[in-house]
């Protein structure tokens, strides 16, 4: 690094007046802290010799870098403190949200009586479709969409499902199996006429090796 040709170690950063831009620029070879900060944000590219060759700027840049390091350390320690907290705040969030927001449309179930209105909510059906996928190993179901007029009995409906499959699995076989299970679930819990279940493999999940695995709790 050519920058280290001007080792500013030990020199103190110029303690300029916060309001005096002229003094700031005079102390920083015509630059400002804001410019230097942006320069660092850009990874010091493209190289600007008027900054790189100025010992004053170098001192300021080092200070900015040090500030950034301390910031990262602060964030790390804040995060580890927050992560170590007990779980009650998670519970309190989950206890305070309502499923009502996601009930979706009402899917009719037949009954001979004209005064009967029997339905299963779209939210309940999506839930059981996810469950169906979750009971299979090595596949994670994402979004499930019921396409078509589910509120009118007899209208053909298409189900669109996004999945992540673990690397190494036989994708067509997994998809077929999931399709069969979902079809059976739809038969059991709805009276929908299912035209197709389209499964899109969005992602392959690559098992992180032990070293890269996320830290255990």
């Amino acid at each position: 690094m050519t920058r280290s040709e001007h080792p500013p170690t030990g020199e103190r950063f110029v303690a300029f007046d916060l309001n005096d831009t002229d003094r700031e620029q005079a102390g920083l070879h015509g630059h400002t802290i804001e410019e230097l900060s942006d320069y660092l944000d850009r990874g010091r590219t493209p190289a600007d010799p008027s900054i790189d060759d100025s010992p004053e700027c170098e001192i300021a840049l080092r200070s900015l870098e040090r500030l950034r390091r301390v910031q990262l350390n602060l964030l790390d320690s804040d995060l580890s403190r927050e992560s170590a907290r007990d779980d009650s705040w998670v519970s309190s969030i989950l206890d305070n949200i309502s499923r009502e927001a996601h009930r979706g449309r009402e899917i009719p179930l037949a009954h001979p009586s004209p005064t009967a209105r029997l339905v299963v909510t779209e939210g309940a059906v999506r839930g059981i479709l996810r469950e169906t996928g979750d009971r299979m190993a090595n596949i994670i179901v994402g979004r499930c969409v019921l396409v078509g007029d589910v509120e009118v009995p007899g209208m053909p409906v298409t189900v669109q499902v996004d999945v992540t499959i673990f690397q190494g699995e036989n994708i067509p076989m997994m998809a077929d199996r999931l399709r069969q299970l979902m079809f059976a679930a739809l038969q059991q819990y709805t009276e929908l006429v299912v035209a197709a279940i389209d499964i899109t493999v969005r992602d392959l999940y690559v098992e992180p090796d032990a070293a890269a695995a996320p830290k255990g709790e």
């Binding site: 779980d87 998670v90 999506r126 994402g142 499930c144 992540t164 992602d203």
Partner: peptide, 24 residues
């Protein structure tokens, strides 16, 4: 604290989790 069960969902991508949560 709620019991923390390790499920495949812990490994799911943000996209998958956000999609599922959006579905309820």
């Amino acid at each position: 604290a709620r019991e923390q069960i390790t499920s495949p969902l812990d490994m799911a991508s943000d996209q998958t989790l956000a999609d599922r949560a959006a579905d309820g």
